[in-house]
């Protein structure tokens, strides 16, 4: 079989293709791609620490590319970012220690899988419910670059107002013209870092809503600061896992190559397709991801290896289905837009 750098060409092509699908999803929805990687690697039979470490390295690479898009828009609060990095680093270290302990007693695979089922299932159910409900509230926050965003118009959620009212010194002034207790910021950072280290996710899909809903940071600043922070948390997480040889470049390099291309296609599709039209597919995809991991666990429990294959097919099928729906809708819209322009020219 053909090999590149000692790795099967088929495996490289598989990861590049999977990365492309994930990239389209990330570029289009602005969230969600990265937490499909670790479950997929678990299902493919990689050790939990390799699945988590390689997932973190992939998140790191993806966030570098996404942050470059935001750098000139002034949507990064560096002071908040540095505080988040401090809290997140501690959280990642504790999460990693917890995972290593679970691996030592032989429970890592089960616990990480169950946590994923709950996390993916919970978010999937929430997104699906919001999408079916319709309306302007799309049930999530976007990572997309929003050049027209006005920081002064931001509404501060009730919970954030409550948290801002706790004046435990020292108080920090943040972009958007408000103050929050240093300890509240560190608590949010630690909790999201814990999840990052434990599950191998960037934490962005939890931290960014947390910055907005809990701390009251305006959405554009929450997005930019979150991405800035993910670069560091992903990098630190990757480094910590790489120290024990748990980052596999034969996974990360092709995944990143595919996802960077897919993210451009997905981002281009956002200007063509209504996100609400597709959002229900996204929620369903997350639910299918949760089901896939659950099926794998059942397969392990009752010694039925065929369920591993079923699980992998469900994960890949879900990613393929949704990214296909996005691509199809984008091409259809492009052609509809082009028709009025081409018809007169045909005369």
């Amino acid at each position: 079989m053909m090999e590149l750098f000692g790795v099967s060409a088929t495996l490289l092509a598989t990861f590049t293709g999977f990365g492309l699908l994930i990239g389209i999803l990330f570029g289009f929805f602005g969230m969600g791609g990265s937490f499909l990687v670790t479950p997929a690697l678990l299902v493919m039979g990689y050790e939990p620490n390799v699945a988590v470490g390689s997932g973190l390295a992939f998140v790191f690479g993806t966030s570098v590319i996404a942050t470059l898009k935001h750098r000139d828009l002034g949507q990064v609060d560096y002071k908040l970012g540095v505080l988040m990095i401090a809290g997140t680093t501690a959280g990642i270290e504790v999460g990693k220690l917890g995972l290593e302990y679970l691996q030592h007693i032989g429970l890592a695979g089960s616990v990480v899988s169950v946590a994923y089922v709950l996390l993916l299932g919970g978010i999937g159910a929430f997104v699906t419910r919001e999408a079916l409900k319709g309306g302007d509230d799309d049930g999530g926050l976007e990572h997309d670059v929003d050049e027209d965003a006005d920081l002064e118009d931001a509404d501060i959620p009730d919970i954030a107002q409550k948290i801002q009212s706790y004046r435990i010194p020292p108080m920090m002034s943040l972009r958007g013209g408000f103050k929050v207790s240093l300890w509240m910021i560190l608590a949010v950072a630690f909790a999201t870092g814990l999840l990052s280290g434990f599950l191998g996710v960037g934490g962005g899909f939890i931290r960014m809503p947390a910055l907005f809903y809990l701390i009251g940071v305006p959405v554009p600043v929450a997005v930019g600061t979150d991405l800035f922070e993910i670069v560091f948390s992903g990098g630190i997480g990757s480094f910590l896992y790489a120290q024990s040889g748990a980052v596999d470049l034969s996974i990360v390099v092709p995944l990143l190559a595919g996802s960077a291309l897919g993210a451009r296609l997905g981002a281009a599709a956002t200007s063509l397709v209504e996100e609400d039209d597709i959002k229900v597919y996204f929620g369903v995809m997350l639910l299918l991801g949760a089901i896939a991991v659950a099926i794998r666990e059942v397969g392990n429990a009752i010694q039925m290896p065929v369920l591993d294959t079923v699980s992998l097919v469900i994960i890949l099928g879900a990613a393929l289905l949704v990214s296909g729906a996005v691509s199809y809708s984008a091409v259809r819209e492009l052609r509809e837009e082009a028709e009025p322009a081409t018809s007169p020219a045909a005369d």
Binding site: A57, F60, G61, V64, A242, Q243, L256, A260, R264
Partner: peptide, 24 residues
């Protein structure tokens, strides 16, 4: 081994991300 390998691994991912950003 150890830290050197970890630093090189993270550096490779960072370099790839920058190359992909510029290249794509």
């Amino acid at each position: 081994s150890g830290n050197a390998q970890a630093a090189v691994l993270v550096g490779i991912v960072l370099l790839e991300a920058l190359v992909l950003y510029v290249g794509y």
